[in-house]
Design a protein around this nucleic acid. Structure first.
Lengths: 210, 210
DNA sequence: CTCACTTACTGCACGCTGCACCATCGACGA
DNA sequence: TCGTCGATGGTGCAGCGTGCAGTAAGTGAG
């Protein structure tokens, strides 16, 4: 028996709370917005709504475009109630998965050039993501699909942009730092311990300084 | 046929490159370090090394503690070569999964109190993680398990701490901001659009300013 | 009319998780 | 000496989730 609903189910329910969508629209919307903090493959979005319907949290309506069928999902009152309740339950912790960081962690198994290429790639990825997020942020309020949700979008985009900026700044700093190393396993005269102590002190101060 | 090896397989191979480990030690080590950027359940670490052995990238040695058997894994030359080659392949993009952010995104389906509790929870989680990371960072160099890898640890801890600090600062700012809202769906007189435009401009400037 | 792109899905192998379950070892106190 | 508790060292299984291949119809540009 599946655990009705999963977090992904609630994510879909949240979208349905805004308005009804076809499965395809749900999938696209997922890529455009939820993708940044709840990435799920398109494949998932063809099974999950069926479970919401089975649980009575949504209803499906079969429609047609010419001969081609399509399914439109809408939230039910039970669905709205479930969504509201879910917002009070404890959230799972934040998860970061990064192959790039993993490669940095094992950099001493390879060459300095490999490490530098990885850092360049991380900087480029951060810039790409910042460009995309800034593009979303610069959408004039009149063009927003759901202007009544603009304040929430503003809140979130600031978080996402700040996270990416932290990665970007780090990548540039790291690139400059490793440029002075003698190899991936040999930092030359760079004093990592002192730098790290300063970082830790800065972090402790930020925590206190709240 | 499995795709030998998966990224998790290379992660294990990277650990074996440092020294041989028992499965149990691999699992614990995974929780302590890789967990921050390549989280995998302990369960996985009992199957994955077997595949490395099957592929000839590692060897297993059965040992005994009294009657209880245990398996010690070590990397092979083929394993070292595979790891080196992997470091040159393109990395998958960074993935962030956060139920907390998801709940903020759908905050207008609930109450202002629910949103505020979520933000408090995010701040607390960030502080927890910063404490843990700062604790690692403050380990005196003499106590490091692998002092020859200290420069890499210093690089990484700075990234992880900077990311968490960005979340912490945002959570505090967001908490102050929503305190003036009239409801989760009603920002009162708060001008999110202007704030967002400023954030976007700041981000664009940071990208250029490299 | 053709071709490329979008819309709208299904099947399947495999990665991965969480939980339940099993068993031994070592240290500690009653 | 016995009980028991935490660390060690695993396996089985249901179910979530991904990526890719495959199928098919609508739509617009040239």
């Amino acid at each position: 028996m599946p655990s009705v609903p999963t977090t992904t189910g609630y994510a879909l329910l949240g979208l349905l709370h805004v308005r009804p969508w076809t499965t395809y629209e749900l999938a696209k919307q997922m890529q455009r917005s939820l993708h940044w903090f709840w990435p799920r493959a398109e494949r998932r979005l063809y099974d999950e709504p069926k479970r919401l319907v089975a649980a009575g949290l949504a209803v499906a309506r079969r429609e047609h475009t010419g001969l081609r069928p399509r399914t439109v999902y809408a939230i039910t009152d039970a669905g709205r109630a479930a969504l509201r309740d879910w917002l009070s339950t404890p959230a799972a912790g934040r998860v970061v998965e990064s192959e790039s960081i993993l490669r940095v962690f094992f950099a001493d198994a390879g060459s300095l050039e490999q490490l530098q290429a990885g850092l360049d790639r991380m900087e480029a990825e951060a810039i790409e993501r910042i460009d995309a997020l800034a593009g979303l942020a610069e959408t004039p309020p009149d063009d927003l699909p759901f202007p009544e949700r603009g304040h929430i979008t503003a809140l979130l985009l600031r978080l996402l942009l700040d996270e990416e900026l932290a990665v970007l700044r780090w990548a540039r700093w790291a690139r400059g730092t490793v440029a002075e190393w003698h190899g991936a396993g040999d930092p030359g005269s760079w004093d990592g311990a002192t730098d790290l102590a300063a970082t830790a002190a800065r972090a402790r101060a930020a925590v206190r300084g709240g």
